[in-house]
């Protein structure tokens, strides 16, 4: 079983082998032309000279990468040393995305499981129930969430009403609020892939294990999880990667006091800094990190099988 869905190669060919290339063709055409080419252009931009206030001059330069990794003090005349500013921003964003993914998994897996074990007819309804909220714009959802958790908002009034807390729980402008916001932004991306995997799960496997007197949590951990893992991995990817670049939740719920990767890149293209090569370089570094992690994972999975 491949870990990253579709990452491993397979014996499960069933005569599809010769069709593989034609079947990939639309993907190659669409993503290749309309995304890979523009992104390649961006990668090129990261090696060009910054045009003041946005844009590039077609002259090779490593200034963007230099700015990312090397600092020479505010006035640029100190001896060069490693620049921690942007590494710190990356670390903060990675950590936050990881926490949000964990939270989504914790709530999303049981939800997906629950849905997948309903009767076939009601499953569709449950699935829709999970996706209906996403017909409302993300901005509106985030603002409404903020309304709920503010100091004098319904949540705090409820908590104080039942005597759980004596004063308002400060949530707005905290990391916890950002986690909640990211969780709320991306939950279905966790639930739907896991649902698709669990729905297919053959419960006879669990039953066989139960007949051998295995406890149900052990069955879940040792029998079920490995089988539905592609769904879990897919879900984690779909939550983790967009969380990395998210800036609506960090800005609105976290107070935007510190740059995240998303807002840092945004500032380079749309902010007053207008430093396109640097924005492109930050993106290239981010993409390289994520892509490397994915490929290493896919390779490891492929080797594990063979």
């Amino acid at each position: 079983m491949a870990g990253a869905p579709g990452a491993g190669g397979g014996p499960k060919d069933a005569g599809w082998g010769p069709l593989a290339l034609p079947l990939m063709l639309p993907t190659w055409a669409v993503i290749g032309i309309f995304l890979a080419l523009p992104v390649l252009l961006m990668a090129v931009y990261s090696f060009l000279t910054r045009e003041f206030r946005g844009g590039v001059e077609w002259q090779f330069s490593l200034a963007a990468y230099d700015q990312f990794f090397v600092t020479r003090g505010l006035f640029g005349d100190e001896p060069p040393s490693l620049e921690w500013t942007y590494i710190l921003i990356f670390w903060r964003s990675l950590w936050q995305a990881a926490l949000a993914t964990g939270l989504c998994l914790l709530i999303g897996f049981p939800t997906a499981w629950f849905i997948a074990t309903r009767s076939p007819r009601s499953r569709t309804v449950w699935l829709f129930l999970v996706t209906i909220p996403y017909w409302v714009n993300l901005l509106i959802r985030t603002v409404s969430l903020k309304f709920l958790i503010r100091d004098n908002g319904p949540l705090n009034e409820f908590l104080m009403g039942i005597g759980l807390t004596s004063g308002p729980l400060p949530l707005v402008n905290t990391n916890l609020a950002v986690q909640l916001g990211l969780f709320y932004s991306y939950l279905p991306f966790m639930v739907l892939p896991i649902y698709a995997a669990v729905e297919r799960y053959n419960f006879a496997l669990s039953e066989a294990a139960a007949d051998l007197y295995a406890g149900r949590w052990r069955i879940l951990w040792e029998i079920t999880l490995p089988v539905v893992r592609p769904g879990i991995v897919a879900g984690c990817l779909l939550v983790f990667i967009p969380s990395l670049g998210a800036f609506l939740a960090p800005d609105l719920l976290g107070g935007a006091k510190n740059f995240m990767i998303g807002s840092l890149i945004d500032e380079q293209f749309k902010g007053s800094q207008g430093n396109w090569p640097f924005g492109a370089a930050v993106s290239v570094i981010l993409m390289t990190l994520v892509m490397l992690a994915l490929l290493i994972y896919a390779r490891a999975q492929g080797r594990g099988r063979a």
């Binding site: 593989a20 990939m24 890979a36 890149i265 924005g279 993106s283 892509m291």
Partner: peptide
Amino acid sequence: RGGRFRGRTASFALINLPLMVPEIV
């Protein structure tokens, strides 16, 4: 289902590319 065809790893990377690229980029 396609077995190990040429360019498979690259295809995998390509499919996931829209996820990797920050939206603003």
